[in-house]
């Protein structure tokens, strides 16, 4: 079995300044190319878990291994660089810089990830191809980000996450801002692309109906414990 793309072992995190509020994740592992749906209500600690995976916060204990590297041993700047190289991130909404063009937005992570940039070859060509594959209109690349519909913006976010083929994509409720039809269409094109690129996907949602498309469905309640001090 190949090395997992994400491997979390015995991670514990306490929020600074909020005594008694802590998150522990004993074990979470994702294989390369695997699509995992993580279900959790708001307040279940999933945002914190995503921050731990992305390395914007450090666990107090345990280790977070991404593509074979323990990110907890890296310095802050190195973790930011590592994130840029290894992880594509898709937010719930407002993914794009409103003042940039679609192309600016797609190429943004490459600016911080020289290795990923070198993997791409022709960045503009790759961005254009991804846009086409994600069903965006041909002239969308040069359009201003805010000129697109919300659904189109989410597709641009997928293109941005996929460019340069990072091994892992983190998506935080990417469909919650879309209506039911758009959701299905969005998931169709996203899955087609992550399968093409053999990218692992960790998608967070509170909607269990999406589960059928994923290789595995896990719940925050099963993998993590959140403790809150009783006031």
């Amino acid at each position: 079995m190949p090395d997992p793309v994400l491997d979390i072992v015995d991670v514990a995190y306490r929020w600074p300044g909020r005594a008694g509020f802590s998150l522990t994740v004993p074990q979470l592992s994702i294989a390369p190319g695997e699509a995992v749906l993580l279900l959790g209500e708001s307040g279940s600690g999933k945002s914190t878990l995503l921050s731990l995976i992305c390395g914007t916060i450090l666990p107090d204990e345990g280790r977070v291994r991404i593509a074979g590297t323990d990110t907890t041993t890296l310095s802050g700047g190195a973790r930011d660089r590592f994130r840029a190289e290894q992880i594509g991130v898709i937010f719930q909404q407002f993914n794009l810089l409103p003042f940039g063009s679609v192309l600016d937005n797609i190429l943004l992570p490459l600016r911080f990830a020289p290795l990923r940039r070198n993997r791409v070859g022709s960045a503009v060509g790759e961005a254009t191809a991804l846009c086409a594959a994600l069903g965006l209109p041909p002239d969308a690349v040069s359009a201003k980000a805010t000129a697109l519909s919300v659904g189109q913006q989410q597709r641009v976010a997928v293109a941005r996450a996929l460019i340069g083929k990072p091994p892992l994509i983190i998506a935080d409720e990417p469909t919650s801002a879309l209506d039911a039809n758009s959701q299905a269409a969005f998931l169709d094109v996203m899955f087609a692309q992550i399968e093409t690129h053999n990218t692992a996907l960790l998608m967070v949602s509170h909607d269990p109906r999406l589960g059928a498309r994923f290789d595995r469905v896990i719940s925050m309640y099963d993998i993590a414990q959140v403790e809150r001090a009783v006031a």
Binding site: G76, R81, R83, A84, F91, F94, F112
Partner: peptide
Amino acid sequence: RREMAIFRAMGARPVV
């Protein structure tokens, strides 16, 4: 704040 979060998610260090 949103704009800064996007930059951070894309791998920009806080100093950027």
